[in-house]
Structures are given as C-alpha cells and as structure tokens.
Simulated scan of single mutants.
Amino acid sequence: MSVTARRVKLAAILGILVGSGLALLSWSQTWYTATLVDGAAAGSAATLEVGGQAASPALSALALAGLALAGALTIAGPLIRIVLGLLAALLGGCVVLAASLAIADPVAAVSSAVAEATGVAGAESTAELVAEVVASPWPAVAVAGGVIVVLAGLAVVVTGRAWPTSRRYGGGVRVAADGATAAPASDRAVDAWDDLSRGDDPTEASAPSVVDIAPDHPNGGAEPDDRPADGDERAEPTR
C-alpha cells in the first residue's frame, strides 16, 4: 500500500470533517446584529442578535450529512468512494450556497428573527423595521467550510480508487492445526442421514479387524500349515 495514498485518504476525510465541523459551528453562532426602528421591538430593545439558526436554517442538516459521509468513507469500497466523493462536493456546494444567500441579503436573513421578536409578518414589513444590519465573521466561516468540503470531495473522486482498502477482521476461514479442513456441521448431518438411509448406524464405531499374533512364536505368530489335508489324514504310506 502506498504511503501517499494513505495520506491522501486521511487528508480528504479530515477535510470533509473539518469543513462540515466549521459549518456546524458557524450555524450555532451569531451571524448578524440587527438594529430595529425605535419602538418596533417589544420593550426597550433596539438591537436584535440573529444566529445562524435563523439566518440559514438548512446549514445544520448539510453539516451533519457531511460528518456522516466522512464516517462512511472510512469503510467504503472503491466504487462507493467515488459516489460519496460526488455527494461530498454537492454538500459542500450547498453549504456555500446557503451561507452566500445569507451574506448577499442580510435583511432577508434576519427577517424571520425580526418577525418573531416584533410579531410583524411578511418580508417587506419586517424589512421596513430594520434600520441597520451588522454581520459577524461566522457567515464567511461557513462559506470557507463549504469550500473545504467541496475540495475534499473532488479529491475523493480523483484519488478514491487508489486508496488502501480497510482491513476487516473476523469472518475468515479457520484452518485446523493438523492442516485438515473440518467439514461443516450441515455436511456432517447430511452424511449421517445418508448412512441411516442405507441402514447403517452412524453412531456405531466400526471395530477394526485384529489379527491375534502369538508373541512367543519365532515367526511372529504366522505358523506354517504342516497338517495334511483331510483326505491325507486317513491315508497311510504304502510300504
């Protein structure tokens, strides 16, 4: 296995993890501080902090999908890696798009938060209540995270086939110590059933034939048959 392939695999997976993590972290922070028209907000509050949850609600789902995809890449085969790499690039592009839409129109991004705080519905009505919107660096961080995911996904598509295959422990074939392969239990059951069909008892061990050998015989128990035949015993030699 190539060391370079291992490094590329590690870098690509870490890139997806880091990019998705940045997007998720950015989503949980304050994106904008909106200054409302006097008397628009309840009480004496003149400013309203808007987090990524309101400015870009879809960002969390995209970031979580990226994290899950990075975990799947660690055990995926060569062909599945290509598919996952394309999905990662698509997810990263969606993250960039979601964050860029909020950056392009901050008033629309804070509209839902303003409507919740003031009770005024409608994009145009809430826009009239917003005097100023100040952005934080977190929307740009989300865009950067999406770009990292896109680049990492493209790296997976290009180099995924050359990645080393993950090792899988267990489930292998076990070999007996004497080198003989043990028959499966199902095969032994079929053999026993065949023996019963032929009228043989598979539980009865066949006794080997044993030849009794006299230990004190000089020829090892194999005595020569010097006795005459049955007809010769009654016959006497003629003199």
Rank of each mutant, 00 (worst) to 15 (best):
D226R: 11
S197F: 06
L154G: 11
A131N: 13
T118W: 10
G179F: 14
A155I: 08
P137E: 00
A131R: 10
S166H: 11
I148G: 06
W193R: 05
I213W: 02
A117W: 15
S166F: 03
R161N: 08
D226E: 14
S206F: 13
G172S: 13
V143H: 00
R227L: 14
V156P: 05
V130D: 09
G179C: 13
L129K: 07
V134H: 03
W163D: 10
A131I: 06
P208V: 14
G146M: 10
S125W: 04
E223D: 12
A222E: 08
R161Q: 11
A214P: 15
V147I: 15
L196Q: 06
A144M: 09
A207V: 15
V120S: 07
S206W: 13
A222T: 05
A177M: 05
G145C: 03
A177L: 07
V150M: 13
P224H: 13
V211I: 09
A162F: 08
A176N: 05
G119D: 00
S136M: 01
A140C: 01
G160Q: 04
V157R: 05
V158E: 01
V158H: 00
R174Y: 11
D191L: 11
R161M: 14
P139A: 01
V130M: 04
V130C: 05
E128Q: 12
V141T: 01
A189H: 07
S166V: 12
R168Q: 11
T118Y: 06
E204H: 03
S197M: 05
V173D: 13
G199S: 13
A189S: 11
T126I: 07
G221M: 07
V147D: 08
G172I: 11
S166A: 15
P137F: 01
S125N: 08
D226V: 13
R167P: 08
V190Y: 06
P184E: 04
V133R: 10
S166Y: 03
G170A: 10
D191K: 12
S206C: 04
D178R: 04
H217R: 15
G119W: 00
E128K: 10
V147C: 12
V173E: 12
D191E: 13
G171H: 09
Y169T: 07
Y169R: 08
S136G: 02
A182N: 04
A183N: 04
V190Q: 12
A207F: 14
W193P: 00
T181K: 03
L196V: 13
E124W: 01
